[in-house]
Amino acid sequence: MAVASAVAAVGLAALVAAPGAPGQTGEIPGTGSLHITLESTTSNEEGLRPGDRIEYTIRVRNSGEEELPEAQVVQYLPPTVRHVSGSGDAAVEERKITWTRSLAPGERASLRMTGEVTGFPEGARRPVTTACLRPAPGAVLAACSAESHRVQAVLPFGWALAGVLGFVAAAFGIAVLGRLLKRRNEAPRSEEPREHAPGEVPDLRTFPGRSNVLHMDVNR
């Protein structure tokens, strides 16, 4: 699936490096023993469009020896993805989903969330979703994981309509020009009048492109 981009890496660093986090992980029980992974699946692997949905799977693990009765999983959504549904009793805010649950020593757990793409991200084609785990409410984020996706730009309706009309007009013009050239090549060529010797009686004929003229031999 999609791999976290450089933007995601910067975001993770900012989240984990919250006030009190550097050098103080030992003061918060369970901080160094929490692990989290975020995976996602979509129906369109080539690129998402507004209206497409993303299925997120969050897996957490407590590798420590201490029980964490109020561990929290927090998922941050980009502005162009909205929450649709999720597993468990989650608290849903505008762009943040929070699960609070206990994690026994060595316990593993998984959570699921469905999001929907609502638009094209400004300045980037890869909106980033981040999920983090902390040992208790208000504690520093101990571990984070991120996923990014490519979103395909959608042409405005006016541009698409103009493109279709332009193609139709060009095809019509080519067809008309082809017919004109075909008629020109098939048109009969004018036959030049035949020269006759003095004293020869010419035939009565009509010269193309002129009025009917009766030619008579002036010597008769």
Rank of each mutant, 00 (worst) to 15 (best):
G173I: 13
E65T: 14
L48E: 04
H83N: 04
L155D: 10
A104Y: 07
G64K: 07
L180T: 14
E191N: 07
S33G: 08
V213H: 12
E107C: 00
T57Y: 02
D89V: 13
R95D: 09
A146N: 03
G30T: 02
T42L: 05
P105Y: 06
P29A: 14
G20Y: 15
K96L: 12
E147V: 11
E45I: 14
P198E: 05
R112A: 12
E27N: 06
H35S: 02
F207V: 08
M113D: 03
P50T: 00
T114V: 14
V81E: 10
T129N: 04
T80E: 13
R53D: 02
R210Q: 04
C144G: 08
V201N: 03
A142M: 04
E45K: 11
S102W: 00
C144I: 03
A18D: 12
R183E: 09
S102P: 05
A4V: 01
L15E: 07
R53Q: 04
R61E: 02
R150N: 12
S102Y: 02
L165Q: 05
C144P: 06
E27P: 04
E122M: 10
G138T: 01
G166F: 10
L12A: 08
G32L: 09
A17L: 14
E192Q: 09
R126M: 05
A136I: 07
E200T: 10
G163Y: 11
S63D: 00
I36T: 02
E66N: 03
C144L: 08
E147A: 02
G32E: 06
A142W: 08
R134Y: 10
E116P: 11
V16E: 03
S33H: 09
G119A: 15
T206P: 06
